[in-house]
Simulated scan of single mutants.
Amino acid sequence: MSATVRAVASDAAHRFSKPLQMAIELVAGHGVKGDAHFGVTVQHRSRVAADPTQPNLRQVHLIQCELFDDLAARGFRVRPGDLGENVLTEGLDLLSLPTGSVLRLGAEAEIELTGLRNPCAQIDRFQQGLMRAVLDHDADGRLIRKAGVMAVVRSGGFVRPGDTIAVTLPPAPHRALEKV
């Protein structure tokens, strides 16, 4: 199965969930046009409070829809946009990609993966116990964050449900994604 965009979402306000859209426009160096996290510098409230001059490494938030299937099997009801993602993917293991991977979304847009989303307490306010469900541990006891990946926009363009996703890996040696 080839990788595709299953849904897109954005919201001009800082809310946990984002409403679905027919399309989103990515702007190089800024993120999703009209989204609360749009900008060259950090837009997440806690990061702005700490240092508003930090570069925005969280311009676009992606989650693989396979996470929703896993959560449903555990009794959670999560729909596209509910976890605040801008792009819901299908058929691509986002968490296994290295830092610096470039994803071409549709015909024009390109994003570069910067790291893992670090879920916060808001996730449990959305559904009690969800924080624990999106965290796991590997065989060596290391924490696995499953709440998606973050990216910056390299090339702008429109992204729509059904668009294909092509992956270009960075030169070796690869670095695993870490929280950003």
Rank of each mutant, 00 (worst) to 15 (best):
Q21K: 15
F76T: 03
A107N: 10
E25H: 06
K33W: 10
L88Q: 13
A36R: 13
G34L: 01
E85R: 07
Q127V: 01
K18E: 02
R47V: 01
A133T: 07
A23Q: 13
L94T: 11
G100T: 12
R117G: 01
V134A: 09
I63Q: 01
T53F: 09
M131R: 14
R45Y: 12
L20V: 01
L116K: 06
D35L: 02
E90P: 00
S17P: 02
G81M: 04
F16T: 02
R117P: 01
D82G: 02
L116T: 02
H37D: 10
L116P: 00
Q128C: 11
G39W: 15
S46T: 08
C65K: 10
L67T: 08
P55Q: 15
D138Y: 15
V87M: 03
Q54T: 05
D124Q: 07
G115K: 08
L130V: 06
Q127H: 14
D136R: 12
L95V: 06
A28V: 02
L113A: 10
P19M: 03
L83V: 01
S96T: 13
N118R: 13
R77E: 15
D140H: 11
T53M: 06
D93I: 04
Q128W: 11
D51T: 07
E25G: 00
D124M: 02
A72D: 12
A133C: 04
G84P: 04
G129F: 12
S101I: 00
V87F: 02
